[in-house]
Design a protein around this nucleic acid. Sequence first.
DNA 1: GGCGGTAATTTATTGTTAAAAATAACGAGC
DNA 2: GCTCGTTATTTTTAACAATAAATTACCGCC
Lengths: 227, 227
Amino acid sequence: MLSAMPLKDKSTRVDKAYARLKADILAGRLPPGFQAPEPDIADRLGMSRTPVREALIRLEAERLVDLIPRRGAKVLAISQQDIREVFEILAALEAIAAGEVAKGERSDRALGIIEEAVIAAENALAGGDMENWAVLDDRFHRLIVRSGGNVRLDEMISSLLNQVFRADIVLLRLNKGPAANSDDHRELYEAIRAGNQDKAAAIAREHRLAGLATMQHVLETCGLTHV
Amino acid sequence: MLSAMPLKDKSTRVDKAYARLKADILAGRLPPGFQAPEPDIADRLGMSRTPVREALIRLEAERLVDLIPRRGAKVLAISQQDIREVFEILAALEAIAAGEVAKGERSDRALGIIEEAVIAAENALAGGDMENWAVLDDRFHRLIVRSGGNVRLDEMISSLLNQVFRADIVLLRLNKGPAANSDDHRELYEAIRAGNQDKAAAIAREHRLAGLATMQHVLETCGLTHV
DNA sequence: GGCGGTAATTTATTGTTAAAAATAACGAGC
DNA sequence: GCTCGTTATTTTTAACAATAAATTACCGCC
């Protein structure tokens, strides 16, 4: 069967609403503070209210929206306090994840994929392509977590990264550079390859904490209290 | 207005369904593996499907049930792998929480409440009242986290504790004693009172990891692969 | 004539809609 | 400034549509 075949859309309306709303929020098309009653959102998505509501419940559990009775669904803004909370937790969780990967099997195949991600990010950075670098940086972090094999950890970290996603974007535009030392990625990769669990965990933790410091500094100097 | 007044039930059907199902799952009245279609559950709860459905979506996000299309909602069992994952994450998160409390303000009032919890648990243990000790132990752990003031951390830890709640109960019955050194609680309290962030974090981490070891050992010797 | 596999039918369950009921915010009138 | 009615919104129900599983009927084959 040819790949050009119009693959039948198996996903349900709930899934579509969820995916679309999430993408719109992360991309900033639904900006923080945006607020609308359920029927409006349902109309925009061309479906009835129930699937929209179910999608919103899931997004609320992920702290992307707030469902305020009789006020409508509201896209949450990220405060400095939120950033502190998320980054502190991320530092700990990513440290575990990195340690688990270093401790684990580390097939040549898996290591190769990680190294590719490191190199790709380095090249983008060297070439000054910051937009692309940001994407590759994000991919590297998520790749490490996925390689750990702890699905809960993966989900939790992914959710936290989404919560501060907009802040990352803003930081990139303001800072014009990596939030933390970009050499950390290579060092982390080397520690993983060497099977050095403690070192990998430490690098991951410090990398994230450095990112927090940069983020706080930049937002502070720009007077941004929320994103 | 007198307090004896029959306080009007403000909660919605979704909240009732959520609370009832969650309580039933944690208490084991809905045992792991239990499975039922939505209409059955709705009938049992005396309401229509929609609020039940929304409650189930929230419970699924908390990893307490699995919603399998055309198979019904299923109460999840906890495997050894699940226990490893949860305890590893808990060790890291509780370490942060303990550290935050030690670093924070630590009013005499707050410290007093924590000490009370420690003493109450010690007394229950000394008196051999294990059921009560388990409750007080759980309260102590959640109290520490709440005192930290990081609401995300609180929520995440609470969710993880719920996921392994049944395993804790089983362990208590099999082990007839604390999963980890019960002196840890007092030591943790002392470290917090002294404002020693690193020590508090270390004790919390080791306490949880010791609990994991005990849990694994007991479940192993009993041949239990899931709870 | 029985057996195994396949196609059609039935059934059970979820996904979705629309409308009714409940409820809280809003505003007019006293 | 308070009360009551109005309105907008959510909550809940009930019915409908879609869909996958289960069952049955059918047919060729041994």
